[in-house]
Design a protein around this nucleic acid. Structure first.
Lengths: 231, 231
DNA sequence: CAGTGTGAATAGGTTCACAGCG
DNA sequence: CGCTGTGAACCTATTCACACTG
């Protein structure tokens, strides 16, 4: 089916939620659910029902009025939006440390059509070995192999100090997109999409929200105390 | 210094950027930088200078007009916003698989005052062992140990199928915040802050952006072709 | 008549423009 | 004079309200 929407004007938030919907749809299909309403999908994902309908309507009209959405059909449509069926994304990982190894072990990622075909490291003891059946090469071979194998996605799992250099090499090799797990801001040409995930930042953010929640709780307690005092 | 702002009305986006600023400030301090302007911090983090000033002004007036910000001082202030100095956050990890192990090995997290004091797993072969010097206990002991050790943060690194159960146990144990790495939507009481990171969703999102970028490139190419045709 | 799809209203976040200070 | 801090303008995202359909 040919899509009429322009991928370029889909908001980041919508893309993120679409991925969550897809995860839920997969789960629901496994559970044997056949149809679901926007309200159900909303309550499963923690967004509002209007938001679900608004998000889906960006890409098409997938629902039946009065009935809701067909789980299997909607899943196929959302998969197509994320490029499933179009191709199986070839990935490589740079940095075979504990995080890199953990990422390669994740069966999850494979399920969506992503496939690691190469790993790269600087450590001579690792070069030539295999991790999760994926061969580990020297970073010097990166450009050659990325080009030869037509690798689409490069995953950066090296220390912050080498992240920028790795990103540069990946871009020069003609990589189509980058996933950066190094705690380092990286600039890449605008035509190379990049997403960064900084695990330590998540801890920092969480500690902020904990303090925020506990401050709010204290303030509410003071209000309750004051109110009971006035009785 | 006593803060005048209400932590509750700080936007998610601002919190996220503040964590990025802190990462940059740490880097800059190591590099020996003494002052920086909002424009410099902006270009390092990929946001606008106005955004940087707007974000910082939520928490206080840290800059000197005409000069900029003092790196060391601003870093201290931002650290304080994230609760550094107030306490060292005790953490526990549930699920000693490859991801759980990778998270425990991360020195990064320790640098910000987070400290793993316990790990939990269901696998009898892992219980009683140590991973990165952190003892692995049975999940049955979770509640007791979290309460006894006053553990603040629980990290979920188990398969999706057990994530909800683990979250429930953590909440019952009185955990103050949760970081969820399982690909599963989880509901927790509103008073327990939770952040979720789904690594496979990041791959999906990236593949969407790659397609989007390549579609845009094709469209631009068509425009260029058409223009040169009209010459 | 239940539930989608969608224009309109509202809320929220970002950028602009400039006053004010070091 | 340069750069911060900030109200106002602008733009984006979410929610509301309801027409419409299977």
């Amino acid at each position: 089916m040919v899509k009429k929407y322009g991928l370029e004007d889909v908001s980041k938030a919508t893309v993120s939620r679409m991925a969550t919907y897809l995860r839920c749809l997969t789960y629901l299909e496994q559970q044997g659910a056949s149809t679901l309403s926007s309200r159900e999908l909303a309550s499963l994902t923690g967004v509002s029902a209007e938001q679900v309908r608004q998000d889906l309507s960006v890409f098409g009209r997938f629902g039946k009025r009065g009935t809701g959405y067909d789980v299997a059909h909607l899943k196929t449509e959302v998969e197509a939006i994320f490029g499933r069926g179009v191709e199986r994304w070839k990935c490589c990982i740079v940095g075979v440390g504990s995080l890199g190894t953990a990422l390669m072990s994740s069966r999850m990622v494979q399920k969506w059509g992503f496939r690691y075909v190469a790993a790269f490291d600087r450590d001579p003891r690792k070069i030539g070995t295999h991790v999760e059946r994926i061969p580990v090469y020297s970073i010097d071979e990166l450009k050659t192999i990325v080009r030869r194998e037509h690798i689409a996605i490069g995953v950066i799992a090296v220390p912050a100090s080498s992240a920028r250099n790795v990103a540069r090499i990946l871009c020069e090799a003609g990589i189509r997109g980058i996933l950066n797990f190094a705690p380092q801001s990286i600039k890449v040409p605008e035509k190379v999409p990049m997403l960064s995930v900084d695990l330590s930042q998540e801890f920092l953010k969480l500690s902020f929200y904990i303090q925020s929640a506990e401050q709010r709780a204290r303030e509410e307690q003071i209000q309750i105390d004051a109110a009971s005092h006035n009785e």
